[in-house]
Design a protein around this nucleic acid. Structure first.
Lengths: 215, 215
DNA sequence: CCTTGATTTAATAATAGTTATCAATTAGAT
DNA sequence: ATCTAATTGATAACTATTATTAAATCAAGG
């Protein structure tokens, strides 16, 4: 049962190695499709599975819905961006020695350990300075929702209540908040995708905004 | 929009708290159904989501296909059994201080960190002394497949080749292995679920055995 | 060069886990 | 007790992944 090096397999491996990120099957599919438009998603999955079983690439077991793959096989830890879910390697000298990766813990025979960091990647730091609250570990993970302030919630609520796009001053009147502050909040909310502006100077709540409001 | 305390919600929370484990929605569903047979799986999912958003319970983002929930909300690390996938808390004094949970790493602003251990739980240690190899971290995770020895593979192959249940001596003849050794291997494989015995003293390969053989 | 037999592929169906939908029910305020 | 929005059970839909299958591709012999 020889393993053939098909052009599909080659491109998949190539693109994964080229990308310094830890792509999901779907992300890789989109990249590969540019060079080979007729390739099937199933082929990407199949080959990622095959390559990881062969030890050529690593199937990461990081948290989250989708599986990520890594062209670097040797064990290392990861940092995940809580906003964009990008996964990257992290190499912390000193940590490895401090954190035991073998031995017995609570009756378990430890075969290995993995250290996952959660934070904001440089790109998201720039994009989103508005993030408030640091309960990001509240649920035992780093993927807490973007918290809305009470004012932001009020603004969104007012938008949800009035049907159709409404002006900032209407919101100010409805919420009883200062008009200038409302404008600022709207700008922030727009940046986060919770508010859009279908008409110039008129604003409305987005579907994303509605779901954010529930939390 | 008040939150009501329904009997379903109460039982779900109660059972999760009662169990010292980190149950999946499905596991919890099975437990709860004993007390409330008409409850829907969707209700369990809905309430786990709601309770975790309210911060009453924690939605664990440990690796794997299914999501686990924890009645203990404060951040802590976990150990996962590589065989039965049981997830338990782990409290290692000293570790927390050694592993930074805030600060800046590789440009990321770290909001939190989680340490995942992989190993064998006490129960699986007893059940499965036959585990060979310690490449459990080979794929960057701890969930490597149970490795089969060459002899075990031969036995499985022979079973796969002959249709219908076959006796140990047939396997011995087909593989050229010692009959006594074959009996031992079959017992091991049966314990691992790769072989079953539809008829007394006759054995066959299971679906699980077939997939294990491919690896 | 052409057949043979195996691997691999694209397309698609199937599956597992989870989430959304919706009519009927129910908790909790009035 | 009445009313109303929250919640439920049942089930459809959805997402990520895996399995199936007929056709395409390849390696090696004749």
């Amino acid at each position: 049962m020889p393993v053939r090096m098909t052009s599909q397999r080659e491109i998949i491996l190539q693109e994964l190695q080229k990308s310094r990120q830890h792509l999901t099957a779907d992300e890789l599919f989109r990249v590969v499709r540019k060079k080979m438009p007729r390739i099937s998603l199933a082929t990407v999955y199949r080959n990622l599975e095959l390559l990881s079983e062969a030890g050529v690439i690593a199937k990461l077991e990081v948290s989250g819905r989708q599986r990520h793959f890594d062209s670097e096989v040797v064990g290392h830890d990861h940092v995940t961006c809580v906003l964009c879910h990008r996964v990257e390697n992290v190499r912390l000298e000193g940590i490895k020695e401090d954190c035991p990766s073998h031995g017995v813990v609570d009756g378990y025979i430890i075969k290995g350990r993995r250290l996952e960091f959660f934070g904001l990647c440089p790109r998201c730091q720039k994009k989103n300075r508005a993030i408030k609250g640091d309960d990001t570990m509240g649920c035992g993970c780093g993927c807490a929702k973007k918290m809305l302030t009470d004012e932001q919630k009020k603004v969104l609520q007012a938008m949800a209540d009035c049907d159709g796009p409404c002006a900032a001053k209407d919101i100010a009147a409805a919420t009883g908040l200062d008009a200038k502050m409302v404008s600022g909040k709207i700008a922030d909310l727009k940046k986060q995708g919770f508010v859009d502006s279908p008409v110039r100077c008129k604003y409305g709540i987005t579907a994303e905004g509605r779901t954010a409001m529930k939390g």
